[in-house]
Amino acid sequence: MRRDYFTVDIESESPDGTPTVRIDYDGPDGELRERLTTGADVLDASEIDVTFRRQPDASTGVLSLTNRLTGEYVLEANATTELVDSLIEAAEDREDGHYEVRLTDSTGKSRVYEKRTLLVYDHDGSLLRQRSLIPGGVEL
């Protein structure tokens, strides 16, 4: 799937106070749903990893959702570093440290994943621990 099929926005103050990354998909029907499905089951939050890879200019990057079990990309979307940093900051300000990923397909159907980890990498693929959202007690 192409990155330009996706629009990324951050709600640091959603109605219930949970920081939310909204990813809207406007590509071909069914393509996203197919990537979110393994066999007859839809991937749940424990099967999805969220990462952000900064580009060399450091102001933009690629937000990715991957299937934790297979390592396959579910999607990649262009996003600004500022938006991702604001999401991480808002999640860190919460006592429980979680955020949501709200993924809306081209038919308007949404799926919400509650997450606590968002790994940020530089353009060379090195983990930026200080810029990442990593829950206490998690060993990488």
Score class of each variant (00 low, 15 high):
residue 27 G to K: 01
residue 127 L to S: 03
residue 45 A to W: 00
residue 5 Y to P: 09
residue 116 R to E: 12
residue 66 T to Y: 10
residue 24 D to H: 01
residue 125 G to S: 13
residue 97 G to S: 08
residue 48 I to G: 04
residue 61 G to R: 03
residue 38 T to N: 11
residue 89 E to S: 15
residue 123 H to A: 08
residue 71 G to I: 14
residue 74 V to R: 09
residue 128 L to Y: 04
residue 121 Y to H: 11
residue 80 T to G: 06
residue 126 S to Y: 15
residue 34 E to V: 10
residue 43 L to Q: 02
residue 115 K to W: 04
residue 54 R to K: 10
residue 46 S to P: 01
residue 67 N to F: 02
residue 21 V to I: 07
residue 89 E to H: 13
residue 18 T to M: 09
residue 99 Y to W: 11
residue 87 L to R: 05
residue 67 N to G: 03
residue 118 L to W: 10
residue 6 F to M: 00
residue 48 I to L: 13
residue 39 G to V: 08
residue 16 D to L: 10
residue 21 V to C: 08
residue 19 P to C: 03
residue 84 V to G: 02
residue 115 K to Q: 12
residue 18 T to A: 02
residue 138 V to A: 08
residue 106 S to N: 14
residue 40 A to Y: 15
residue 80 T to K: 11
residue 48 I to F: 05
residue 73 Y to L: 11
residue 79 A to C: 02
residue 7 T to E: 08
residue 48 I to H: 14
residue 109 K to P: 01
residue 55 Q to H: 08
residue 8 V to E: 05
residue 6 F to D: 06
residue 138 V to H: 13
residue 106 S to G: 14
residue 47 E to F: 15
residue 103 L to K: 04
residue 16 D to E: 05
residue 83 L to W: 02
residue 118 L to D: 01
residue 7 T to I: 09
residue 44 D to A: 05
residue 108 G to M: 06
residue 48 I to M: 12
residue 82 E to G: 09
residue 120 V to T: 13
residue 53 R to F: 10
residue 44 D to F: 02
residue 134 I to E: 06
residue 9 D to N: 07
residue 48 I to E: 07
residue 19 P to L: 03
residue 75 L to F: 10
residue 109 K to S: 11
residue 107 T to I: 05
residue 108 G to L: 14
residue 126 S to A: 09
residue 94 R to V: 12
residue 81 T to L: 02
residue 104 T to K: 03
residue 32 L to P: 08
residue 125 G to W: 04
residue 135 P to I: 06
residue 117 T to Y: 02
residue 6 F to R: 00
residue 84 V to T: 07
residue 59 S to Q: 12
residue 95 E to T: 09
residue 92 E to K: 15
residue 86 S to E: 15
residue 11 E to N: 10
residue 36 L to N: 00
residue 38 T to Y: 05
residue 124 D to F: 13
residue 48 I to S: 01
residue 24 D to Q: 12
residue 53 R to Q: 13
residue 121 Y to A: 06
residue 123 H to Y: 06
residue 4 D to F: 07
residue 126 S to R: 08
residue 5 Y to W: 12
residue 60 T to Q: 05
residue 100 E to T: 13
residue 100 E to W: 10
residue 125 G to H: 15
residue 44 D to C: 07
residue 93 D to H: 07
residue 127 L to G: 08
residue 104 T to P: 00
residue 109 K to W: 07
residue 40 A to R: 05
residue 134 I to T: 12
residue 57 D to K: 10
residue 28 P to K: 10
residue 131 R to E: 10
residue 37 T to I: 05
residue 140 L to H: 06
residue 140 L to K: 06
residue 29 D to M: 11
residue 72 E to F: 12
residue 133 L to V: 01
residue 63 L to M: 04
residue 38 T to P: 04
residue 70 T to I: 00
residue 102 R to V: 08
residue 6 F to Q: 03
residue 54 R to Y: 08
residue 114 E to C: 03
residue 50 V to L: 13
residue 40 A to G: 15
residue 10 I to S: 00
residue 100 E to S: 04
residue 31 E to Q: 13
residue 135 P to W: 02
residue 16 D to M: 09
residue 107 T to G: 07
residue 2 R to Q: 04
residue 119 L to M: 14
residue 21 V to M: 01
residue 66 T to C: 01
residue 78 N to E: 12
residue 16 D to G: 01
residue 76 E to S: 13
residue 28 P to Y: 09
residue 125 G to Q: 05
residue 84 V to S: 03
residue 98 H to K: 12
residue 97 G to A: 02
residue 56 P to E: 05
residue 34 E to W: 05
residue 87 L to N: 06
residue 60 T to V: 08
residue 130 Q to L: 05
residue 66 T to Q: 14
residue 83 L to T: 06
residue 41 D to E: 13
residue 27 G to S: 15
